[in-house]
Simulated assay, not measured.
Amino acid sequence: MRKDHHEGPPLLEVEQLTKDYRRGVRANDDISLRVPAGQVFGLLGHNGAGKTTLLNQVIGLARPTRGSIRIDGADAVADPAMARRVCSMQPQAQAPLDGVTPRQAIELMARIRGARRQQARHRAAELIDALDLGSWADTLGDRLSGGVRRLTAFCMMAAEPGRLVMLDEPTNDVDPVRRRLLWGQIRALADLGCAVVLVTHNVVEAERAVERLAVLDQGRVVAQGTPAELRGDDGDRLRLEVVAPDAAAAEALASAPAVPASAPAVASGRRMVLTIDAVHAADALRWAQNERTAGRIEEFSVTPVSLEDVYIRLVGSGRPRDEQTEENGDASLVA
């Protein structure tokens, strides 16, 4: 059962953090957040929203323009070496595995982080089994798929984790079955007492793992709270989605919906999405079933309003910046 740790004292505390680059790019703008031990905290946002830049400042790879970062009460800006000792990070870039096997890489990283030889071997075997990597555990890294390399990088980070764990898009390239296993291991790190900061744009999957989250847009936090808090009034509403034979039919359904809606219908291609109050669920199902029987729609679903719906309402399509540019913006500001 998931424990609720969000009321505890913060292990990571970020206050009014701003990061400017010389070319006028503001990567982070007055960001404040707190993450206690035992919690999975999500950072959601489009590419270029400033998520990776924030992590780089926490771990001491970049220096804030202003604001503060404290890890377990200590000043991480003044002492970036301390931050790197306390933090374990899985970056978005693939780990270099050429010439070593996943098992060797995981054991080596555990030893570097201070584990004894036998402990490192046991932990590597445990993670390989938990993520179903046995078929590739002893295969050289240059022969591995992107998904297996990504999972190996997670295991390298988790083999002997620091008290603060930061994961930058850890599920990229990972197949659906092992993604579920990976989410379980992310949760397990929090249950061990780590504070986990998870960067992702996969809102649907993140909703199952995080206890609190912040939505970033153009470098600013536009919303923060538990998934239930962010849903707000939408928690009592449902999402009706239908697939029409063509885009024109979807537009026609959206322009004159036959079911009472609490927000304007949205058509995108062959799909039409409508938000309805729960009291109208039976009417919506009856209407959709009749439309499918008549051949006017091909399929439909009625589900609770998701965090993804809230996210889209908050940030829309966004105007992503090049986050790589942010990270490489001004060499004079890199710690």
Rank of each mutant, 00 (worst) to 15 (best):
Q16R: 12
T139Y: 08
A223Q: 04
L307S: 13
P96K: 09
T200Y: 05
A244M: 08
L97H: 08
A49W: 00
V165T: 07
L43D: 11
R113L: 02
I128F: 08
A195I: 01
I59C: 12
Q16Y: 01
Q39L: 07
G147Y: 03
M272W: 04
R143A: 15
G146Q: 03
D234N: 14
T18A: 11
S332I: 00
N202P: 03
R150Q: 13
R212W: 01
A120P: 02
T171W: 01
Q94G: 13
R212N: 05
N28M: 02
E308H: 11
I59G: 10
R239W: 14
C194W: 03
A125F: 04
V221T: 09
Q224A: 12
T303R: 15
A62G: 10
A27C: 01
G67H: 03
Q185T: 05
R63H: 13
E291P: 01
R163V: 01
A159T: 04
M109D: 06
P161S: 13
L164S: 10
V25W: 04
D191N: 10
G235A: 14
Q92I: 01
F154I: 06
S32A: 09
H280W: 02
A115N: 08
A254N: 04
V196N: 12
L108S: 08
M1N: 12
N28C: 05
R231V: 02
A294L: 13
V279Y: 07
A105D: 04
R286T: 14
E327Y: 09
V100Q: 13
D246W: 04
D138N: 09
Q218I: 00
R84W: 03
A76F: 03
M166I: 12
R2H: 14
L189M: 07
Q90H: 04
A244Q: 08
D30T: 03
N56D: 12
P260F: 02
E298K: 11
E327N: 14
P245W: 08
D142R: 12
A27R: 00
S332Y: 07
E126L: 05
G235W: 00
S88Y: 07
A288C: 13
D168C: 06
E160D: 14
A267C: 07
A78Q: 11
I312E: 11
D277T: 08
V315H: 06
R163T: 04
D4C: 08
A37Q: 13
L181F: 03
G134N: 08
L216V: 01
R179V: 01
D234K: 11
V273E: 15
A261W: 02
A261Q: 09
S301D: 15
P80D: 07
I297E: 13
R292W: 03
